[in-house]
Amino acid sequence: MMRAQVRLPRWLIRIAVRMLRVPTSATVSVTKDRAGSTGVRVYTPTGARSGAGLLWIHGGGLLFGDAKQDEALCLSTAERLGLVIVSANYRFAPEHPFPAAHEDVLSTWRWLIAHAAELGVDPERVVVGGESAGAGLAAALVQRIHDEGGVQPCGQWLFAPMLDDRTAARRELDAEQHFVWDNGRNREGWAGYLGAEPGAATVPDYAVPARRTDLSGLPPAFLTWGDIELFAGEDLAYAEALRAAGVSVTTDVVEGAPHGFENWAKDAPVARALVARAQEWLRGVTAPA
């Protein structure tokens, strides 16, 4: 018999995340700064730098989270690849619906590009990435940057991205009770972000990445997800739509893996292996031309 998942209240999750104890590293310095209305964490290698950068966006279903929750991944990536990483904070739904979070990560992108010289980053070698809701925000941000022109990211690094509100509208998925992130919570996140029930005929531009019909001209993408998680179908569909639009796409589907396992089970061999593969893709896409 499947045991029902215990859902903690959103306020308690937010407090718990803020109290996270994070790892330390002797080879990466971590500082805090401001980018628009939100704070950022900047990870700077103390050793050799590649000259490339990563804008990273944390997950939390659009409802909670903090940049420091992905400290282990950011430290590892900065250290192994010599990247400067700017990890973004943003405002949460439902108190701050779209476009609040989108505008916050856009402000962080603009801050990173404006400060590229002092950060030691080549603005032409910056990737936008994230996990879960953060990966969805990253995908939408890449679309917005493409449409506005100017300096473009050289890649998008997406871990189990939350891309499509129409998944939340599929009530038959509720019974599956996906581990970590189920469709009831998914519907709560999308409804709070959109300010309306998910699955409407139309949504605002950049609110739902999977709703965009023209994906041509976007940068190369790395997408990974577990084959048993709620987002498996929408992530596969987005990868296929990118390929159909002529975008270079690398997918890494992990068998038997639930949502976000590379974060909360980061010391498991399968998680370490995935992160290593993802980092090698990142190394290649940020290499000097």
Score class of each variant (00 low, 15 high):
A241C: 09
V105Q: 03
A289I: 02
G39Q: 14
A48V: 14
E95Y: 06
D70S: 08
W225Y: 15
L230Y: 14
Y193F: 15
L137S: 02
E95H: 13
V127W: 08
T108Q: 05
I85R: 04
W190T: 04
R21N: 08
A245R: 02
P123V: 13
R110V: 02
A48S: 14
A276K: 09
G260N: 11
T38S: 07
V128E: 02
F231L: 14
H115T: 06
V121F: 13
G184E: 13
H115I: 02
T46M: 07
L218G: 03
A268L: 14
D205M: 12
R211T: 09
R283P: 00
G184H: 09
P258Y: 07
V6A: 13
E188A: 11
S87L: 03
G65N: 07
A257T: 14
V84I: 10
T46W: 00
T44P: 07
P161F: 08
R187F: 00
T224F: 00
W225H: 12
G199M: 08
E240Q: 12
V127C: 06
V203M: 01
A16G: 15
C74I: 05
R171G: 02
R283I: 00
Q279M: 11
L242N: 05
F64P: 00
M1G: 15
G155M: 12
T77V: 11
S25E: 04
R21C: 00
T31E: 11
D122K: 11
Q69L: 10
V42T: 10
T224C: 14
Y206I: 04
G226W: 13
Q156D: 13
A133N: 09
V249L: 03
G134E: 02
I57P: 03
W111E: 04
T224G: 04
G256P: 10
R125P: 10
